[in-house]
Amino acid sequence: MADPLEKDGAGVDDEQPRQRFVLDEGDFNEVPAKYRRFYRHWRGAGDQLAPNEVICPVCKIVIRSTRELRPGDRVYCMACMTRLRVTRSPSGQLEGECEY
């Protein structure tokens, strides 16, 4: 039986189980300590997004989840208090779209 958590975002792309991620405590210090592992700074040229990450279009912070992200997922940027919906760009990259 599938893990119900892995059914999140069902209807979007639920054929493959989602990868799970253990988030390390980085140096992001702009939100309360209990939320810090869900965010990191973009490190510039050479940096790459993992399957569980998208960039906040408002403040450019990298948002991280414990699960692989898929189009249709909802994520939150606590650094700038924005609610986002994950979408796929024409180039195939996952992006966050503001949901007011």
């Binding site: 210090n29 702009e30 309360p32 939320y35 869900f38 997922d73 909802r74 208090m81 609610r83």
Partner: peptide, 29 residues
Amino acid sequence: VSDVHDLAPEAFEREVHSFEFWFQAVEGY
């Protein structure tokens, strides 16, 4: 926190607009 993105939108709004959130955020830097 298991995954912050599992919060209900209303809970997220309440949390990030609070003085408590602000206080702990600015303390970090």
